[in-house]
Amino acid sequence: MSAIVECHNLTKKYRTKTVLNNFTATIEENTITGLIGRNGAGKTTLLKILTGYLKETSGKVAVFSERPFNSLKVSANSIFVDDQMSYPPALQLYELIEAAARFYPNFNLKLAKGLFDYFSFDPKGYHKRLSKGQKSTFNAIIGIAARCPLTIFDEPTTGMDEGVRKDFYRALLKDYLEFPRTIIISSHHLNEIEDLIEDVLLLKNGRAFLHLPITELKEYAIAFKGRKDEVLRRIGDRDVLHKQYIGADTMYAVVKNDFQEEDLEQARRSGLEISSVRSSDLFVYLTKPAKGGIDDVFGGN
């Protein structure tokens, strides 16, 4: 395995705002990485730098060992799919598919046509007349069929209805199995992509906050529920990722899971309920802007 994407202290500043702040991460070949983070965390900026649309302010960024900005090699081997993809208004939908096929050497026209028909697109239709969801679906078809060594989807399911979303993720997985490639898919709904991805890259405040296999994310944290003093005693001085009070004296707390099995056993014996934390919930806890939560706005506990 070799690294397809390497970023070291990558920083992107706009006049008043730092969007990426010393971002460092490496993405290995033929993995599917879920890039997650709240709105405004810097996901889109990062992805646009990787495809050479935007220019980094400082730090190092390499895709296929080359700086992406103005690299033909990067452009020819990568595709960036989002809901802003722009096409010439004069071309019909099927002509757009054919045009894409001429640009990308691995393009699978048969697959594109199959998906095109499956989603009932009109070959003679025009992109600008499609609904938001249809646009996303059409762009996704191009993104899958292009079979680019680096395929990037930025919030690809915007506007798609539930059924189409499922079909899209399934199509992406099946084609990935048939034709492995490096895929980065951004989303602020982790639960949508958690089965699809191999690694999670969590972006927070312009940094790589977490980068680990999804299977490890599922074991990253643990939740205690029970009498408040007991819970507090068990979690000690660990950083509380999330806490919630239920009734007068019951507390639910999520902390990083670095407990020994016997500690957990003792906690159970002292009457605490211990459970794992769903990765999508964990994602919310990890990315919340500051300590506290919505309750604090209302001056609660």
Binding site: L72, S75, M85
Partner: peptide, 11 residues
Amino acid sequence: DTDFTFVTNRL
């Protein structure tokens, strides 16, 4: 933008 949907660089 249309240019950059497919393969290109600024040159």
